[in-house]
């Protein structure tokens, strides 16, 4: 009986294999489907759950936030948010403004510098081009922590230590190499014929860059802008070293430390503040994600 069953099973397997051969393009077998969905679901869970838990925690009072038997709802309310926003725990809105200013300036400056550098690297052959590219690559491998002391000295020399502009420059020096690399790659995908057609139509070299190449590299610009913003937004080490210790000059990421004190951590408030900090990053992502579709330069050439 059992052997008969086994035979039947193997027969159906054979049938399935045959059916698999007959699958049309774009269709998946059941097994592949299950495997694929399983992998996707577990990956999503791994990345979403911690954030979800921060969200859950942010509504709980500090005393209930950490518990041996965690519950989804445990005297949950929005007091944490109200406390954080009202400034009862520190000048949250002031920090928020500082962060917006610093991250925004960093984004604008880094993207502008990286775009013009990337364009030059993509279009012109000049002495030192290769070493510059190599340098940008090598810089990425440095642990940025080792830069704190030399940068501190530099900023002191420039008279920018403790000022927001100094921090912006520091962020640019870490983001520009990556952004330049990224954008050079994007510009390389825009055919040089388009530049030349623009020159013939009466654009100056800068006009070509501004009116043709930049619009065509929007996806690349979006990615680099997002990268620069997020880097500056969440950074702690440089921000604590290069901004003055005064409470009103802190960025959000530095300010959040008020919730972590020597003998007690206000987990509920910390979570609420974290959620508030994450929102602008999400907003920026939403703003740029519609450009993150490839194929913008499709149609330029014969195709």
């Amino acid at each position: 009986m059992i052997t008969a069953n086994a035979a039947a099973v193997s027969a159906t397997r054979g049938g399935a294999a045959l059916a698999k051969l007959a699958l049309r393009r774009g269709e998946r077998s059941l097994l592949a489907s299950i495997g694929l969905h399983g992998a996707l679901i577990s990956a999503s869970f791994v990345s979403v759950f911690p954030i979800f838990w921060v969200l859950v925690t942010s509504f709980k009072p500090d005393t209930k936030a950490i518990s041996p038997q965690p519950k989804l709802l445990d005297e949950s309310n929005i007091d944490n948010y109200l406390n954080v926003l009202s400034g009862a725990k520190g000048d949250f809105l002031g920090w928020f403004g500082n962060s917006v200013l610093i991250a925004g300036l960093t984004t604008a400056l880094a993207v502008f510098v990286a775009a013009s550098t990337g364009y030059a690297l993509s279009r012109f052959r000049f002495p030192g081009r290769r070493s510059l590219l190599l340098g940008f690559l090598a810089i990425q491998m440095f642990p940025f922590a080792v830069l704190i002391v030399p940068l501190y000295n530099l900023l002191l020399g420039l008279g920018l230590q403790g000022r927001a502009l100094g921090l912006v420059l520091v962020y640019c020096s870490t983001t520009v190499p990556f952004c330049t690399y990224m954008l050079k790659g994007y510009f390389d995908t825009v055919p040089t014929d388009i530049d030349e057609a623009g020159r013939m139509d009466g654009l100056s070299p800068f006009g070509v860059f501004w009116r043709l190449v930049l619009p065509l590299a929007k996806p690349g610009l979006a990615v680099t802008a997002f990268y620069a913003f997020v880097t500056a937004w969440g950074e702690v080490a440089f921000a604590s070293a290069f901004l003055s210790a005064a409470d009103e000059s802190k960025t959000l990421a530095v300010g959040l430390q008020v919730f972590i004190q020597q003998n007690r951590t206000e987990w509920g408030h910390l979570s609420a503040a974290s959620i508030l900090v994450a929102l602008p990053a999400v907003a920026v992502f939403y703003l740029v994600q519609r450009f993150l579709v490839g194929g913008l330069s499709a149609g330029a050439v014969k195709g």
Partner: peptide, 28 residues
């Protein structure tokens, strides 16, 4: 090039992908 009053048709056509046909033609 802009001072030469010349128009060129490229082998690859080199149309501006982000502009419509009318904008392409009227750009100059």
């Amino acid at each position: 090039p802009k001072g030469r009053d010349i128009a060129m048709v490229f082998q690859s056509y080199a149309l501006y992908p982000h502009m419509t046909v009318a904008e392409n033609m009227g750009f100059a």
